[in-house]
Design a binder for these strands. Sequence first.
DNA 1: GTGAACAAACAGAACAGTTGGTCTGTTCGT
DNA 2: ACGAACAGACCAACTGTTCTGTTTGTTCAC
Lengths: 201, 201
Amino acid sequence: MLDEPLLTAKGEATRRRIVAAATAEFAAYGIAGARIERIVAEARTNKAQLYAYFGGKERLFDAVFTASLERILEVVPIDADDLAGWAVRLYDEYLVRPDLIRLATWHRLERRPAGHLVPDTARLDTGKLTAIAAAQAAGRVVPGDPFDVMALVIAMSMAWSPVSNVYAATADEPEEVHRRRRDLLRRAVAGATGAVPSGRA
Amino acid sequence: MLDEPLLTAKGEATRRRIVAAATAEFAAYGIAGARIERIVAEARTNKAQLYAYFGGKERLFDAVFTASLERILEVVPIDADDLAGWAVRLYDEYLVRPDLIRLATWHRLERRPAGHLVPDTARLDTGKLTAIAAAQAAGRVVPGDPFDVMALVIAMSMAWSPVSNVYAATADEPEEVHRRRRDLLRRAVAGATGAVPSGRA
DNA sequence: GTGAACAAACAGAACAGTTGGTCTGTTCGT
DNA sequence: ACGAACAGACCAACTGTTCTGTTTGTTCAC
């Protein structure tokens, strides 16, 4: 029963539809608010399949969340020599795929109230951290714990994200507004993380 | 039925216990995840009182949320001439009262997926915005929409908040760690928002 | 090729536990 | 005595999960 059955092409397609529907559902309502009924309806399948493939609501969220996480990691790779540009690309990514940040935040709120968002941050962030450390060694980035620098830049990129506590931007706003925010963000990240060449500021 | 009964001293005390219990409950589980049963148990009262005083789950959340919002506004007043210091004070506030930010984020996720967190931002933020605008006019803060500057600084202060998508700090971490983050935050906000006196950076 | 056999895909009913919300009746304070 | 505070039973609706039975696709002996 716990063994997932072998998937045929058709089953694989259904499985994917379930993941897609669940991603939207969880992003919109969270774990507690999501409804299995709505997911299977949206995925044009039935509960039996969902439970055969994923085992339950919690584990379905796991599948959805980890898939989303890997996606965002590869879509917006870090550029430690241009943290400002990286932040701007993240800003744009949030506009295109608000679901991913919402998913991450639900995960934070409903599952991990403290500490790292995911347990094995080490594996996921190693690339980012060494890149930042290298840029610091080259004097292009302000000194300090690379992890903290990363957290700060990501936080800045999320100032207008779908989970902002001030204002959540959307793609349908005028392009000029986005340009204004990108400019401010770029300059701010540069100013915040750029190493001071010499003397005082 | 919709008319709330006049409150005696005892009733007022019960009402307050309900708000306190509901604040903790909503902060922990959100609107969908919160349980009326747990709230009345924690508040040492019963459902009849809760429904007489607040009318229902949603409206109870309203009461809890707006109360928390006003609280955080008055506890950490802005200092536009020292945005870095303000950000650091916010960092500390999140350590002391993680509930308030969590509440705000639940509100964002479950109720206001886009735009302003609260509809009448105008009234709430006017003070902040004029303060920032004045500091900009005096050349102490980088130019740009004051609202965007505010959003950015708040976002920076939340880099390690209880809703961070990277790492959620807690009060029980070593003081040295907090000091390190505060230093980075202070310098970063100063660098991000400080106006450049003249020439290039 | 064909048809029996088997596993996966499917649909929907059924189930048990829970939840927000209401109702009835009792106690308390003034 | 009158209304507010209170306690707990009660209810209807909903939800995650399981079960029963049917259809579909593939395999393979013949």
